[in-house]
Nucleic acid binder design. Structure first.
Length: 231
DNA sequence: CCAGACGTTGTT
DNA sequence: GTCTGG
DNA sequence: CCAGACGTTGTT
DNA sequence: GTCTGG
């Protein structure tokens, strides 16, 4: 699955690489240990209508809480358990299907962590694109209105799929990683269900690299560049 | 009908 | 053992 | 995902 | 809001 990741490429560069026209998040610190419940940048089509023009809705970078809170939730804590959505079933699940139809997003990540079970306990690994460029993880996002009023809460989940060859020794699940064409299709509101389904597959072998890292990443309170260095 | 879940992973 | 919070 | 709490009453 | 289980 995917329960921890890193994003340290400057957000302006991420925006450029992801074709973002509106940047709604600035001055973000580089992150080496992003944990569920934290605010993370996502790339999405603007949920708001474009003024007059009839132009394409903007592709924007916004912030969302990691852990999807369905609109019908009475309490946002349900999001603590909705950090991933299975690609095989998300389209039909009550908690995800509205988002699957209407609110797909990309979650930029320089890499993600997986924990491998060994005789000595769990060994964390860092996995990234071999090019070193930020990856686009397939995501869903949602808006939740607090019953007591106030600002709606934006939240998101990362889609998972079966592990590919590289990942299999480490873990049996991995996040869905979208290539350039996949990113376009995933964000296309008119995408056909069968096209979307085809996107939610393990990454091809050969595009990723992985190495063991320090167990200091285990604590979400640790946050420094050495967490993604080989150890 | 109403009540209660709505999710994933991992472990047994 | 299981839930909550980060 | 992992870490850390897991409880109540009463007092500050 | 909508589905599942009783």
């Amino acid at each position: 699955m995917c329960g921890r990741y890193a994003l340290y490429t400057p957000i302006e560069a991420v925006a450029r690489l992801f074709g973002v026209s509106e940047l709604h998040a600035h001055d973000l610190d580089p992150r080496y240990n992003i944990a569920p419940t934290q605010e993370v940048p996502i790339v999405r089509r603007s949920p708001y209508p474009v003024a007059e023009s009839g132009a394409e809705p903007a592709r924007e970078l916004a912030l969302a809480r990691w852990g999807l809170v369905p609109f019908w939730a009475k309490d946002p804590s349900i999001g603590n358990r909705m950090i991933n959505a299975r690609g095989e079933t998300a389209a039909g699940k009550p908690a995800f299907r509205n988002a699957f139809r209407k609110r797909r997003c990309l979650v930029p990540a320089d890499g993600f962590f997986e924990w491998q079970k060994t005789a000595d306990g769990k060994q964390p690994w860092y996995i990234r694109d071999a090019s070193g460029e930020p990856m686009a993880l397939a995501g869903l996002w949602e808006l939740w209105d607090p019953p007591e009023g106030g600002e709606p809460l934006a939240s998101c989940a990362i889609i998972t799929t079966a592990a590919n060859e590289l990942m299999r020794p480490l873990h049996d699940r991995m996040p869905v990683i979208l290539d350039q064409a996949g990113r376009e299709a995933w964000l296309d509101p008119a995408a056909k269900p069968e096209r979307l389904e085809a996107l939610l597959a393990p990454a091809p072998d050969g595009i990723l690299e992985a190495w063991p890292v320090s167990r200091r990443v285990n604590s979400p309170f640790n946050e420094d560049p050495s967490l993604v260095e080989p150890a």
